[in-house]
Design a protein around this nucleic acid. Structure first.
Lengths: 203, 203
DNA sequence: ATCTTAACGCAACCGAAGTTGCGATAAGCT
DNA sequence: AGCTTATCGCAACTTCGGTTGCGTTAAGAT
């Protein structure tokens, strides 16, 4: 865990290639067939790596997901910085909407949530992923506080959660359609609550 | 679909017994082992019904979930009515928290969300379930509007969504712990936004 | 009471996911 | 270059979820 490539005990040429091939194949399989149809044999066939190797190094489907999640958590996020909290929050919630409705990345993102619901390791990985996202997105709020747009004792991560939560709620719980309008209203509501001081560290 | 028991073509004694036994076994299995471990064979063994019968009438695991969901959607919900929106909303979000963290009903509720993520039929059933819940909970807001506690053009269901969404977000997406405090803050934020007019039908 | 047939039980079968033991390959070290 | 051993490929096996064909039971109608 010291370097970027810190999983295998022998991270040299062959193992690295195997790892990269399996990771890529996992993402492709998820994008095409979704989580329900993700199988070790499918990933093995697509990657050209033998299935026993995949079973040994990743343990199974859950391991593949967890690995892909850790990879996804590392790459940074284009946090908006327009100079206005309102615009920033709207851009943020719209980013979430596209991330889950886009034909390319949508199935993959959805697969992460689905996997977390069935495997503790994937759940832990997802927790880490969103902790990272909260950290990054919180800057939107801290900047707004610095500009005096929001109360000084506002909890940044809490605003972020309130903004994006309704989008996720419709996507995965109530199963209602989501679009840019939903994103905008969610961002607006979170902002209104923040302005009213609802996200202060003391109630 | 005319009567309460409207699925089988021959709803008489035996079929009804089979149906009830399978439904009960499904809920028990979900509560004990969770959705990931839910199998037709397990339900068949526990219910005393042969597995071929279960496969024929329910089609598979997804059908079992969808059936259980429809059953759950029918039973009403103890919507709070304390006379204060703030108290009502808090009670509502707390109801959600206990519904998913309680050792008994928690795994079953979670299973419904998990199943919807993998099967379109379960997703449709879950959508219907929450549409019903929104309808029932909206009364909290309509009463508040009638009392003059909230703006007249407030969208009731939108307030409900905003109140409960952060709880679900932590449960299934960010994987953060939830308790009564989280429930109270989520209700408070939704209320603050509603008072500010963020849930008016016109932006 | 009798008859028709939908619904169920049963046993055998099929296929794919997951496991195991062993031999082959190639990192990484001297 | 040569050696050691972690890692991978391979084939056979096991297990279990799911399917099929057929005989049996009992619901519902006359």
């Amino acid at each position: 865990m010291t370097s970027t490539e810190g999983h295998g005990l022998r991270p040299g040429g062959r193992s690295a290639r195997v790892r990269a091939a399996v990771r890529a194949a996992t993402l492709s399989e998820l994008a095409e067939k979704g989580y329900a149809a993700l199988t070790v044999e499918g990933v093995a066939a697509r990657s050209g790596v033998h299935k026993t190797t995949v079973y040994r190094r990743w343990g199974g489907v859950e391991g593949l997901i967890a690995d892909a999640l850790e990879m996804a958590a590392e790459e940074p996020w284009p946090i908006p910085d327009t100079g206005s909290v309102e615009e920033d929050l709207r851009a943020l919630t719209r980013l979430v909407v596209t991330g889950f409705t886009d034909p390319d990345e949508g199935p993959v993102s959805t697969a992460f949530v689905a996997a977390a619901l069935q495997d503790p390791a994937a759940a832990a990985a997802l927790h880490g992923f969103f902790a990272s996202r909260h950290d990054q997105a919180a800057r939107i709020v801290t900047r707004a506080v610095a500009r005096g747009e929001l109360p000084a004792d506002t909890d940044p991560a809490e605003v972020v959660r309130a903004a994006v939560a309704p989008v996720y709620y419709r996507l995965f719980v109530s199963r209602e359609p989501v679009d840019a309008g939903v994103a905008d209203r969610a961002a607006g509501a979170a902002l209104a609550a923040a302005r009213a001081g609802a996200f202060g560290y003391r109630g």
